[in-house]
Design a binder for these strands. Structure first.
Lengths: 226, 226
DNA sequence: ATTATTGAGATTGATGACAATATTGTAATG
DNA sequence: CATTACAATATTGTCATCAATCTCAATAAT
């Protein structure tokens, strides 16, 4: 048995008591999304426990959280693996995002305050000068800022989960400069529609934005797999 | 400390190894949905472990599963409680169901085989002569049968989760005979539209059905809370 | 040569014990 | 009498260990 990476790349010493599982899940999620944990990789509990310097229990709980996000698959008595990515899965995620996010935006727009739109715009500014690694997170936060006023906790949690799933695909393709440029344009249009409180246009923008993103990623993935 | 119900009301001896958590979750879900576990009730791990005759670990995993379904809320270091029910939550569930289920049906209809429609019709037959306790489960299965051909695992899992959440409200109101009668009519209309592979009509039926259901339940809950 | 079997090793699922945190009841003080 | 500080209790989070299951290679049989 070789030494492994014996210790924690964990950023902030794994939080307090009761937050270890969440911290481990966050770190693993980051790595899976970033692609450093490739699909199909086996996630041994003992191995992860050793790496993070904790027992197997918090690791198990962390894995459960990732299963809920669809980033990890779990066969009873057989262990956990990073889920495969596929065109079908990508398509499904984007279909669901479209349904969930257009619903959230529709409800949120009448409640949206100017300061919240400002906040979204500031995030978009950051996004346009961000590096690969930060793109996914900032992008999610941009969208979430616009949806938050809808005051629907279940729906927002669902959207977050889909965002995590989508980020896996996004990160592999965001290197394509044109994808980012196109995305930025669409975000700006969406912001304008929100400022006007123009529900119809805003939802049309969002729908197009998500469709287009899904298609771009799909093409990229297809090319990469071939 | 009083003896509690020392042992398992569990139906099928709690399955084999690795299925205990799922079995416990299923039993708790049943009780929460049926209303015998009232909202706000504290779910002590030790207590549940004692009651089911197992250790606390499978109980913890079961609680996690219920959290994912939104039936249980979990504060770190403070424990689990049955989530409150509310008009806002009911509304949110039905909004999400509408978005998710109309998407699933839209994709499924072109793939729907006659035998699958027959299966759904058979379930509807059962549903019309079912008792309160079976209503929720059969109702979910009826809907799921129509969606299954869409071949979208994430989406179907999401719909299942929403169904569980909706059943909590459904069970309190299904006693109203007129709700069931109305629901049956709508199911029949939906089946006709599916047989014709008439996507537009089918989705309109489904949307109306879900909206109407949500409104009926909302009125009932409002009345009951007052 | 191919397939079935079986046994060792590895890994997961579950248990009971310990440490940290929250809750509650009591007493002291204004 | 109300309020706050503190101690006792209860409950959760984690750990270390045991038991059951799976993997996989080596062996034997057809």
């Amino acid at each position: 048995m070789r030494p492994e990476r014996v210790l924690e790349s964990a950023p902030a010493k794994l939080g307090q008591r009761g937050a270890q599982a969440a911290a481990i899940a966050a770190e693993l999620r980051r790595e899976i999304i970033a692609g450093s944990m490739e699909p199909g990789v086996r996630l041994g509990q003992e191995q992860l426990a050793h790496r993070f310097g904790v027992s197997r229990m918090p690791v198990r709980e962390a894995l459960k959280l990732l299963v809920a996000d669809g980033l990890v698959a779990f066969d009873p008595n057989k262990g956990a693996r990073v889920t495969q990515i596929s065109l079908e899965d990508l398509r499904e995620i984007y279909e669901m995002r479209m349904a969930a996010e257009s619903l959230a935006l529709k409800i949120a727009i009448p409640e949206l305050s100017n300061s919240q739109i400002d906040k979204a715009e500031a995030l978009q500014d950051q996004l346009e000068s961000a590096t690969f690694g930060d793109f996914g997170g900032l992008n999610s936060r941009f969208h979430r800022t616009l949806y938050e006023p809808c005051d629907r906790p279940r729906l927002l949690a669902h959207i977050d989960s889909l965002s995590s799933a989508a980020d896996r695909y996004l990160c592999t393709a965001v290197a394509q400069a044109n994808h980012a440029v196109q995305s930025h344009k669409e975000h700006r249009s969406l912001l304008v529609a929100c400022r006007n409180r123009d529900e119809e246009t805003a939802i049309a923008c969002l729908t197009d934005h998500i469709i287009r993103g899904g298609e771009t990623l799909g093409r990229y993935l297809e090319k990469q797999q071939a």
